[in-house]
Design a protein around this nucleic acid. Structure first.
Lengths: 209, 209
DNA sequence: GTCTATAACGTGATAGAC
DNA sequence: GTCTATCACGTTATAGAC
């Protein structure tokens, strides 16, 4: 079997386990996940999981770090681009995040859930907050704000709206599907609309109030 | 000890346990909660918990139902008011929900987390979805939409924006406090601003796109 | 009703054969 | 490297004294 084939069809055992762990942890969270679930999902034995990764906690740590990292690094180059306007960055963020989340819709709820019970998971906090605060995006955002008349509106509102308009639908998705009867296809179409609407809405909100 | 005193100071044992369960379940979720945590929080013995409520699952069921119920019924009379405009209802929803969530900020994340792993928890789905769909609010909302020119914007977007703008900050709160360094007082001030801004924003969004 | 002690079970982790 | 068998422990739930 060639290397390419191997990577595609079954990959290494270690990688298979990690992939299974990602699926199960993201769907059920750390506390509700049984290591046996991961072993089953990977199609291997429970002992093997501990052979490769010393413990459930270690394995989780890896998945958590990767999820956070993907969420942040995906848009870092966007935030740090000196040559694009604030508006362009907002559009690009909406695009990048909606792309990412259509592929992995569980990420937001996963992060929210795990940070709730274990805020120290954010020892990446310097990484995360500092990346944003030190970004070109943040500078442009502050400049735009100071140009407003007597803006008594707390700057945090803008951030909450930007992230919330993008992310909240994915958090509400299970509820939408179960209680409102929305289907996957319809949800996707709504998100494709939002991809274009969110930048427009944000502009209106900033100018209007 | 008078009845009033009893109710205020220690209440009945059953009520104390239920109250403790609410606190712990809402903070940590079902899977991460140990019945011992609840017993400790209530200041009673573990056996007593099973004496009053047959099992952890039964006790959780009660808390879950009440949380969902509070979330829905709190605004039902608002939704069904024949005598107020759509705009007034939006303002009233923002007010009612922000009041509720400033008191109990854990509710949204709790519901999101538990519905994720157990969507059947929404066998109240008829109750919930039907209450909205059959409400005066929903009728007014559809009328407002049909008056738009060629509104190709999916109606779900409005609902997502209304709920998301209100609820998302509470979901993001732990992250804001840990990674961004927001304090409780500052968060409250932001929410007091949003109470007034959200109706304005929504109007702008509906008219603009 | 409330407690202590303990049973019954599930889960994370390891030993040891292959 | 991968498996089966099993341990060690934590957790839910119950029995039984008071």
């Amino acid at each position: 079997m060639s290397k390419a084939e191997q990577k595609k069809s079954d990959s290494s055992t270690e990688e298979r386990i990690k992939e299974a762990a990602r699926v199960v942890f993201l769907r059920k969270g750390f506390a509700a996940t049984r290591t046996r679930d991961i072993a089953d999902e990977a199609g291997i034995n429970l002992a093997l999981l501990n052979y490769y990764f010393r413990s459930k906690a270690k394995l989780f740590e890896i998945i958590m770090t990767e999820a956070l990292s993907r969420f942040v690094s995906k848009i870092q180059h966007v935030l740090d681009d000196e040559d694009t306007s604030l508006e362009a960055k907002i559009s690009e963020m909406a695009n990048q995040y909606i792309d990412l989340l259509l592929e992995e819709p569980e990420i937001p709820t996963f992060l929210v859930t795990e940070i709730r019970t274990n805020p120290k998971a954010l020892n990446m906090k310097f990484t995360l907050a500092q990346k944003i605060v030190s970004s070109v995006f943040f500078r442009q955002y502050q400049e735009a704000f100071q140009q407003r008349k007597v803006s008594e509106v707390h700057p945090l509102n803008f951030m909450l709206n930007l992230i919330g308009l993008i992310v909240f639908p994915f958090i509400a998705k299970p509820l939408l599907m179960e209680a409102v009867g929305i289907e996957t296809g319809e949800f996707k179409r709504v998100m494709e609309q939002r991809r274009k609407l969110i930048p427009i809405w944000l502009k209106l909100m900033m100018e209007g109030a």
